[in-house]
Design a protein around this nucleic acid. Structure first.
Length: 191
DNA sequence: TTCGTGATAGAG
DNA sequence: TCTATCACGAAG
């Protein structure tokens, strides 16, 4: 299980290094193939820029806490709080499903494994993540945590950085990270 | 490309 | 109160 100290550094390193780790969620799990970093400072796309409630969230929580919010009236987004050298969040954007695939298919009402978790709103639906898990410590419960994938690490993962998706402000920063060539990401790499 | 859908925050 | 905005997804 990845410990809280992992999230006690800065969002960019955390986002990059989470690629290849496994997200364990109850009976389901998947390998993280896409993330984005959001910095609490100097990043207009981060919620902290416009939302006092998000700044308060950072103040009262510790590194590794889940930041779950509702967007566009229908989608939940899962983020992890990074708090240490620099504060911010890592948005979990896509997974390669590993365990509990049948359960994910039921929740998504979809059979195509490649499209089960290929987007931030899709993976929360597949794993049944909602505001029930908001502020949950993701470094404490072995059923809701991240696990480092030692085998993948040894293979020296090829991680690509490009521009974040679906934002207008601070859009040029290369703060989206994907596993090179993965067919499980939300959108192809741009340059 | 277009729309559904609802929380949040700032303005009036 | 009212309105703009939004880290999306599915259909067409």
């Amino acid at each position: 299980m990845i410990r809280a100290s992992f999230f006690g550094r800065d969002p960019l390193n955390c986002a990059r290094e989470l690629i290849g780790a496994e997200l364990i969620w109850g009976d389901c799990s998947g390998v993280i193939v896409e993330t984005e970093a959001y910095n609490a400072i100097n990043d207009e796309a981060c919620h902290t820029f416009m939302r006092p409630s998000t700044r308060a969230f950072i103040d009262r929580n510790k590194a590794g806490a889940a930041y779950v919010y509702f967007n566009y009236g229908m989608h939940w987004m899962l983020n992890v709080l990074v708090k240490g050298d620099a504060n911010g969040f890592v948005l979990i954007r896509a997974l390669e499903p590993r365990a509990g695939i049948e359960r994910m298919k039921e929740r998504r009402k979809l059979d195509d494994v490649k499209r089960l978790c290929s987007g931030p709103g899709k993976l929360t639906q597949a794993l049944d993540i909602t505001d029930r898990q908001h502020e949950m410590d993701l470094c404490a419960d072995p059923r809701h945590c991240f696990a480092s994938n030692t085998r993948a690490r040894l293979r020296r993962l090829d991680v690509v950085a490009d521009e974040r998706i679906g934002i207008t402000r601070s859009a040029h920063l290369p703060w989206r990270f994907t596993l090179r060539g993965s067919p499980f990401v939300s959108a192809p790499v741009r340059r």
